[in-house]
Nucleic acid binder design. Structure first.
Lengths: 151, 151
DNA sequence: GTTTTTGCAAACCATTTGCAGGGTC
DNA sequence: GACCCTGCAAATGGTTTGCAAAAAC
């Protein structure tokens, strides 16, 4: 969970207005440390009584996406989710248990693989999407035994 | 473009019935060499006057997916597409121009990268999805000049 | 004859859009 | 005051489902 400030600052830097509804969406986004979907935010805003319309949430997410503050993930079941992230990194490891994500900065090995693939296939690759799914350390610990006993 | 036979054979092997509607869907699938979406098949079946209902197409694709005959792709724009593929390979390079795909069998380099990521992040990774987008050789040639002149 | 499949239409749910009113710079 | 942003409600599409009839084993 992070703060909203950086998000709002990025809005202004990008030439977007710093409005109340966007601040509310930013707050919800910042409070998730795992991934979340647009409909989830919509439900959450209703539950918490936040004055933001459905369309605004979708539109705000688009803006955040355009600014690179958030990234789109496609979960294994086909759902479209988002994660808050650094504007530079590009891949995520997603925990299938709790939804938490970690960023993967090791682009070096990947870049090599992509080059090899270009040579093998003859395709000129300009973007790639890599999503990794597994279990995060903390969920692994729980699975080993809720009593705290190591596996 | 491939034949329907292998698809139908796989159906039986998997304990599913070899029915007419499924054969029709298999035919459409086999005739695409790029990716396709469920709604696309629905439209195609109507255009060609094939007697298959919408729901049946969705259900047939689910069966093919379960059998590993087809794989699900998430295009950069978020669309859910499918590609016909070998039951063993797992990644695709997708041409953004014509939609054609090539399979990537080089899992070796990737496996190494995944292991490194596991060590860095502490996550236990059990599945990964890799999708590569670019331009296929034949579209590259066209881009260089439709007259056939080499770049 | 029993079990699968199918088709249809309706239901569902995510996402987008038109437009009038409100907020921000 | 001009332009950007929002909310609402309706439209749009993809996907699923209930159920009775039809096909397959």
């Amino acid at each position: 969970m992070s703060t909203v400030e950086p998000l709002l600052a990025a809005l202004e830097r990008g030439g977007y207005q710093r409005t109340e509804p966007r601040r509310l969406v930013a707050t919800m986004v910042a409070q998730h440390d795992g991934h979340f979907t647009a409909p989830e935010l919509v439900r959450e805003s209703r539950r918490r009584g936040l004055p933001v319309g459905r369309a605004t949430i979708f539109r705000a997410l688009d803006v955040f996406l355009a600014l690179g503050l958030v990234e789109r993930l496609d979960l294994p079941d086909g759902e479209h989710a988002y994660v808050l992230c650094e504007p530079t990194h590009h891949h995520h490891v997603v925990c299938q248990r709790c939804g938490r994500t970690a960023e993967v900065d090791d682009d070096r090995g990947l870049r090599t693989v992509v080059q090899e693939i270009e040579q093998h296939t003859g395709y000129a690759i300009d973007t790639h999407r890599v999503e990794l799914f597994g279990t995060c350390p903390s969920c692994q610990a729980q699975e080993a035994g809720p009593a705290g006993r190591a596996r």
